[in-house]
Design a binder for these strands. Structure first.
Lengths: 354, 354
DNA sequence: TTTGCTTATGATAGCGTTATCACGATTTTT
DNA sequence: AAAAATCGTGATAACGCTATCATAAGCAAA
């Protein structure tokens, strides 16, 4: 099937906007002040602390601002005030269902308080993280949000020296750099192992990425396996180091069935993987949960919609983002934040796949 | 199933970082210059245009920078140079499978060239778009990327007056503000209608959101229906104004089967909706494509993985992002960009659901 | 040798805001 | 009525960097 493009004149001529260097001078606060016959400070106040300016003057200034189409230069304002009204956010990747809901949680609160989010992704490379943080710190953010609690020493130092609120999310640590919101991945592994063992499964596998690529998954895997061992049950591991996706879930399932045909339950590193595995079972007419039970992780939408619906571990990602934003805002307002470390918990959601 | 939290001391005491206002003075370029016994300009050059500084001096300066842990203040630099090295990006929402791959395309090129992405979402509200743009323009971005080609007059004016490269994406228009990369949603509607009609389907439906919430979907729907009419085929529409998701796909399918039981093919506004509908068919033992054919839109991963795999319209989202980034970078480097409007096309991918 | 041309470095003046202090004009208190 | 406090406004000096011009040193050309 060939790519379809519009038949007619597909691409028109030159770009229409002239060279910016020739452009007319932008309107600054000085122009506004002149036009409104006041000082620049009064304009600044009318915009930022309206209650400090008398009602009629404020009205006049706001009208002038509107008429001239003045847009305050945040870069200049940031330099002058020392606070750029920006918050740096570092996540491993956007290409994973976990981080988007978390970001939406942040976006649901921060912009309306005037904060711009500066998003950086390190694509799971720990060394890239250091550069990324240096870059993001250069914007003089008012706070930093970073996924995970396992950072290089240099990263920790840079973050601590930034002398700015830092919040580590998605995982828990006993020694946060500053604030920390998340849940215990070790506990997830234990709970899931017990859940499956209690339901009578005897040959239980973990499937996901390992090592650097999914540090938190590795934590779940470790405690999952330890728990199974303690309960003297068969345990198996299949892994794949490609970025997580439905297709990789299929591969993992194929792999698992080949290597360990006796397996009767699998805990996947996330719901996409679990769904991919489920689809593969459908194709092979393997009955879920009768022949094999599947447990996902995150409670993404897909988990509740497939047939059979997936048992999974519900993690409050949106809420984590919102709570993180809320804690930061309170901290930035100067309010004391009394718990620097919040265990937001998780829940096993039992559906039809176990 | 109760939420599980770590048993022990769940939240520890106070945040560890002291009040920023008490903090020691940050290291600036002046400190570096003093320590390296050079002028500030030489430090600036050593960092930004290393070829302008003699090799030994450069080495000394870079070592000093390293020793002191100096991080250049981009806000100050941006103010001084007039270019903040930032690019504003406006998308409707993150909560939709289309925008993330597009953003990844941008992220695959812009940060490595030193540009920070300033991301804003308007959650589909056109009036929010104006505020958002004003906010983002305040950062003096070097360029602006915006999803869609249908903007309010005010928005168009603000963008044009910003005197900065603007690139509209995801859709095509004859009158771009500046640059434009996308494909024709009208053509998608026509092509899909013809595709289904040619395969013998006679009672064909469109299912998706309508109106403001999905302007581009509405364009597809319109030309889809027009084409069906021209071919004298039955056409039906079901819609729902909740944000698109797998669950909504199920609802739409339920709705459709109830209102128009004679339907034999459906074109969904995206793959998530289509997948949700497919899952509902599975539950009801409706055979796809025998009883009803399903076509999705976007070629997201889920489309190729479900059973039966979904026929869908492949849209190059990542590539669109990458191409947009590439065009912007060339423009920012001063190179002439010879086509201001690119029709990137689409492809119907036939799989098992038709 | 003198002149001119590079090249490497530094001094200085902004960039567009906001913090701060100062100053009248009011209002309140004594 | 005088003194004190409060309020609204503006002048000015940063904020930390880079553009620009000036200068010194080195070297080639005349």
């Amino acid at each position: 099937m060939a790519t379809i493009r519009t038949k007619s004149k597909s691409s028109s001529g030159q770009a229409q906007i002239p060279n910016p260097s020739l452009s007319v001078k932008r309107i600054t606060i000085v122009e506004v002040a002149k036009a409104a016959r006041v000082g620049t400070m009064t304009v600044s106040r009318a915009l930022n602390r309206p209650e400090m300016v008398s009602a009629d003057l404020r009205k006049r200034i706001l009208k002038t601002v509107e008429d001239l189409g003045y847009i305050p230069n945040r870069v200049a304002g940031g330099l002058a005030s020392g606070t750029a009204k920006a918050i740096s956010v570092i996540v491993p990747t956007l290409n994973h269902p976990v981080y988007v809901p978390f970001l939406e949680g942040l976006y649901s609160l921060l912009p309306q308080e005037g904060y711009q989010i500066l998003l950086g992704t390190n694509e799971y490379q720990l060394d890239a993280e250091e550069n990324l943080i240096a870059t993001l710190l250069g914007w003089q953010p008012d706070a930093i949000v970073i996924a995970g609690v396992d950072h290089s020493l240099r990263t920790r130092n840079m973050l601590a020296q930034a002398r700015v609120p830092v919040i580590e999310i998605m995982d828990l640590t006993e020694v946060p750099i500053d604030m920390n919101i998340g849940f215990s991945h070790e506990q997830v592994g234990i709970a899931t192992a017990n859940f499956l063992a209690d339901r009578g499964y005897r040959h239980i596998a973990y499937a996901g990425m390992l090592s650097q690529l999914d540090l938190r998954g590795a934590k779940r895997m470790k405690s999952f396996v330890t728990t199974l061992k303690r309960r003297k049950l068969g345990h198996y591991i299949v892994s794949n180091d490609k970025p997580s996706s439905i297709g990789v879930g299929k591969t993992l399932m194929v792999d698992l069935l080949e290597k360990h045909p006796q397996v009767d339950a699998v805990f996947f590193a996330n719901d996409d993987l679990a769904a991919g595995a489920l689809f593969e079972c459908q194709r092979r007419k393997i009955r879920v949960p009768k022949d094999i039970a599947i447990v996902g992780f995150n409670d993404s939408e897909i988990a509740s919609q497939v047939n059979p619906a997936l048992t999974t571990v519900s993690t409050p990602r949106f809420e984590m983002g919102r709570l993180a934003a809320d804690m930061l805002l309170r901290r930035l307002r100067g309010t004391r934040v009394d718990s620097a470390r919040i265990d937001i918990g998780f829940r096993i959601v039992e559906r039809e796949s176990t």
